[in-house]
Amino acid sequence: MSSPPLPGAHRLGDFSAYRSHEAPRSDATGTEWDLSNNELTLPPLPEVAEAVRICGLDPNRYPAPLPHLLVERLAGQFGVARTQIVVGPGSAGVLQQLLLVLCTERDEVLYAWPAFDAYPLLIAVAGATGVRVPLTATGAHDLSVFLARVTPRTRVVILCTPHNPTGRRISRDELRWFLNELPPQVVTIVDQAYVEFDELDENDDLDLVHQRSKAVLLRTFSKAYGLAGLRVGYALADSEISETARKATLPFAVTRAAEAAAVASLDQETVMKERIAMVRRLRTELGESLGDLGLACPPSHGNFLWLPLGRSATGFGESVARDGIKVRVYPDHGVRISVGSRAAHRRLLAAARVTGHAAD
């Protein structure tokens, strides 16, 4: 006699676990040549490394059920109430908390495609239905198309800016226009995982949280702060949304080391800005070098570049992989290349020089 299906299994049946098909990293490959994960390749700051070391001396101790110290620090950093902050295991973890409390099985969530490939899985876990909205030919959001896709079932819109994987940003004027046009029941989650790499002031969007109860800013310490392996992210939102989302937090989800590293990173603002400026310079250099090879990249505001290769994307990825370079391939769309070291860039450019691939 067969067992009854698990609740929500009909939503997850079309998905595999996130990136479960990928082989584990191998020391033989060397992470220096992995340009697929948008990681910061710079070593941790000494103060951050020391904070992690100290926390590692007593791993027998639980972290706080909720990371109150980091919440207090973020509240002061952004001039918001503590009740407006949600902290979790990376921005993906916080996004899952938000979707779980905002959505029911009757609801739809709109998001651009291609995009961060965890979006559809996280939406399905929340029991909602994902609705993909194609990017424009230049890799940008078409917010008018988003509005046309809104129905009475639409509960959440996810906008990623700067966008992963294309690096395009939504202008402040466009974003505010869009929020004003949405029906009042729709919550907009603005995924700003890469906002620190943009040339604009990341604090300019804080008024969205202060003035619009249905706008959420989602951020992470994984990218610009280089804490991808520690898993800590946060959201700034209306207190009602934040307080509800905190109820969906897995207890002890943010480790003591992750919290301490995040606080130490916030205390090193000047050095962090210098490191971010270095990533921007490397991004510009790599883009210009790829352009010299006939591989034109649109302007990017993240720590990566986008090659809109269309049907040639898979072939390009396979070709550079044979030379030891791993990039992120979006079949039939393009290739995302993370900013790495100059040595990794030289290896990539040498491999790309002989691929012969161009956009379709």
Rank of each mutant, 00 (worst) to 15 (best):
L307G: 08
K273Y: 01
G315F: 00
G324M: 09
A260N: 09
D332E: 14
G324Q: 10
A344F: 01
R281S: 15
G294I: 05
I325N: 05
G310Q: 10
G334Y: 06
D292N: 05
I276P: 05
N303S: 14
A296T: 14
G315E: 13
M278P: 00
I337A: 07
G302K: 03
V263C: 15
G287N: 06
A296D: 11
I276H: 03
G324D: 10
E259R: 04
S341F: 08
V263N: 04
R280S: 11
V271H: 10
E274L: 15
E274Y: 05
G302V: 00
E288P: 00
S312M: 12
L295S: 08
R322N: 07
S319M: 04
S312A: 15
L266H: 08
D267Q: 14
T284W: 09
A296L: 12
Q268W: 00
L307F: 06
D332I: 02
V335E: 06
V279W: 03
D267S: 13
T270M: 07
A343G: 12
C297R: 07
G287A: 06
G315Q: 05
D292Y: 02
P331A: 13
A260E: 11
A313G: 09
E318Y: 01
A262D: 09
G302H: 01
E318W: 00
A321F: 10
I276Y: 09
L266R: 10
G294Y: 12
P298M: 05
A264Y: 02
R275A: 10
S300T: 12
E274N: 09
T270D: 13
V335K: 07
M278R: 14
R280T: 06
R311D: 14
E269W: 07
L286S: 06
E259L: 01
G317P: 06
P308C: 04
D292E: 15
L286C: 06
R336L: 15
L307Y: 08
G315H: 08
W306A: 05
R311P: 00
G310D: 11
E259V: 03
L307A: 08
M272D: 02
M272Q: 14
G287Y: 11
G287K: 05
R328F: 08
P299M: 01
T314C: 01
Q268Y: 02
G324P: 02
S312Q: 15
G294V: 07
H333K: 02
M278Q: 15
W306G: 05
R328N: 14
I276F: 12
A343M: 06
L307P: 10
S265E: 13
M272A: 03
A261T: 05
G291K: 07
A313W: 08
F304P: 02
I337G: 06
G317F: 08
S312R: 15
H301Y: 15
G317Y: 11
A313S: 15
G291M: 02
G317M: 09
R322Y: 00
L309Y: 09
A277G: 14
